[in-house]
């Protein structure tokens, strides 16, 4: 298969590790080579979290400057922060619901107005998909399913060599039983954002 470098960025607590676990399991079951690099430990305490996922014949589980084929942002400021890892052809899939850093709540920094930068994001890149991830997750039944909304949105782009069913099956095995229904809905909501656009 074609090589794919997927960079997922967000904030500690947004479920980015489960997002990448599910994606990894889908690849494993489909027999597609997969490797990833995760963030554990101190950085998870409300800090910036990223997972690098590579599919196909790539050994390095890290994505360097300009190398991402897809950038999946769980939070708009984190999407903007990660743009150095993109190039002109990078497909951007991002939630627009902000998570205000503690440092901003404490009055020590300001959170930017996003209207202008998000408009520029759309002008700069060929394919940009923006969605209110938290809102979609809540509508599906739980705000914590933002990660699966993002997964659905990534799947819906058609960039990955996996069928929609593969994702739904992996969600059924990896998500705790009582959250499966909400997560399947969350996946569909995300998928609808990008599929057929």
């Amino acid at each position: 298969m074609e090589k794919k470098r997927i960079l997922a960025v967000g904030v500690g607590g947004q479920g980015i590790l489960l997002f990448s676990r599910i994606l990894g399991e889908v690849a494993l079951r489909a027999g597609v080579p997969v490797a990833m690099s995760e963030v554990h430990g101190m950085a998870q305490r409300g800090g910036v979290v990223e997972t690098n996922i590579v599919l196909g014949a790539i050994r390095s589980p890290l994505i360097s400057q300009g190398e991402a084929d897809v950038l999946v942002g769980f939070e708009p400021v984190e999407t903007l922060r990660a743009l150095g890892r993109t190039n002109q052809k990078t497909v951007i899939v991002s939630s627009t619901d902000p998570v205000i850093p503690q440092i901003v709540k404490d009055g020590l920094a300001t959170y930017p107005d996003l209207a202008e930068p998000l408009a520029r994001l759309k002008e700069t890149f060929d394919r940009v998909y923006l969605f209110a991830g938290e809102k979609l997750a809540k509508e599906a039944g739980t705000a914590r399913a933002l990660n699966v909304v993002a997964l659905g949105a990534l799947a819906g782009t058609g960039l990955l060599p996996f069928a929609k069913e593969d994702f739904l099956n992996a969600i059924k095995t990896l998500v705790k039983p009582r959250f499966v229904e909400a997560n399947l809905k969350a996946f569909e909501a995300g998928f609808a954002v990008t599929a057929g656009v």
Binding site: V48, Q65, L83, E116
Partner: peptide, 23 residues
């Protein structure tokens, strides 16, 4: 030639997000 990101001069100043004690 390493791949280059597009011009990003339009990205505003972003607040840092250091790890913090949980609420």
């Amino acid at each position: 030639q390493p791949p280059k990101p597009p011009s990003l001069t339009w990205v505003p100043e972003l607040p840092p997000r250091p790890p913090t004690l949980c609420p």
